[in-house]
């Protein structure tokens, strides 16, 4: 029998067509994600000022960056904001999820209320909280109007406290999402196991502490990844709420990058700061993606 294993045109097309269809997207990602990352990385080692320039200056930009007081402020702010934001959102989200999990009435309505801020733009959130926290017309003025004349709440104008107002607004916007993540996790827990725990004599509190919460690890993980990367990327909210002020008191790396690159014409330093942001996010995301995709068959 003469073997003719050569593939027919049709069979070859069957193999090639899927790759052809995928390739435009891959090309876009290759250029506009990876190519651009490469380009920005190069700029961070260059003497670019107002426009890209290709003179190699080594780690000069990074040295300058780390010696800048504003970068120092930005990183400190990000640390304060990031930690508080993640911790408060997680705790509040878990607490709300447990409350909602008690077979309550109108659960759908309450869930909708808790989650709607997630549909808003950070700019809208920023505007609402900016004026609500403004001592001239917001909470403080309202309290004075209601007769509590000694009431003071002027964090948003206070260089030391302004960063916390960003935490307040960001938690308001995102905690509902964390609640939803945990609620989905709670609903995914095997009901028979909870019955077994009850039969074993565990009370509500013990059931949550010993059985339920330990099983929410995946929900914690995905909440952490989403919150961490939102914290590092946060830009809109800071711009809308405080615009980095008072002065530079609420600068964060994202506003720093924008201002050095496009306003102060220090593109090399801006690129270096973007690089630091990328590396920080990558440190969180890459292990996560790796562990999520690794077990995939083949």
């Amino acid at each position: 029998m003469a073997a003719h294993h050569a593939l027919s045109t049709k069979a070859r097309l069957r193999v090639l067509l899927p790759r052809i269809v995928l390739s435009p997207s891959l090309a876009l990602v290759a250029i506009f994600v990876y190519g651009f990352i490469f380009f920005t990385t190069y700029l961070s080692f260059s003497d670019s000022k107002m426009l890209p320039s290709y003179g190699w200056v080594g780690f000069e930009n990074y040295k300058t960056l780390f010696s800048l007081r504003m970068w120092d402020i930005a990183v400190t702010n990000l640390a304060i904001f990031g930690i508080l934001y993640i911790v408060i959102c997680s705790v509040l989200g878990l607490f709300l999820a447990i409350l909602l999990d008690q077979h309550i009435r109108a659960e759908g309505f309450i869930r909708t209320v808790y989650l709607y801020p997630m549909a808003l733009s950070f700019i809208v959130t920023g505007v609402a909280w900016k004026w609500f926290l403004d001592p001239g017309i917001g909470l403080e003025a309202v309290m004075h109007d209601w007769g509590w004349t000694s009431f003071q709440f002027r964090w948003i104008k206070d260089r030391d406290m302004a960063i916390y107002t960003i935490v307040i607004a960001a938690v308001w916007q995102t905690s509902g999402f964390v609640m939803a993540t945990f609620l989905a996790g709670l609903r995914g827990i095997d009901g028979e196991m909870l019955k077994a725990a009850r039969v074993d004599g565990a009370g509500t509190f013990a059931v949550y502490r010993r059985i339920v919460i330990p099983q929410l690890r995946p929900a914690f993980l995905s909440a952490f990844v989403v919150l961490a990367h939102m914290a590092i990327k946060s830009y809109d909210l800071v711009v809308a709420l405080t615009n980095g002020g008072p002065g530079t008191a609420t600068a964060v790396p994202s506003t720093f990058m924008y201002s050095y690159t496009f306003t102060r014409n220090q593109m090399g330093i801006g690129a270096a700061s973007a690089e630091i942001m990328l590396l920080t996010i990558a440190a969180v995301i890459i292990p996560y993606l790796w562990s999520e995709l690794r077990e995939d068959p083949r």
Binding site: M1, A3, H5, L7, S8, K10, A11, R14
Partner: peptide, 17 residues
Amino acid sequence: GEVSINGRVVNGVPPAD
């Protein structure tokens, strides 16, 4: 190896054919 159906080697022939 080879698979043949009704005298025709079908290695590389798409399922529909």
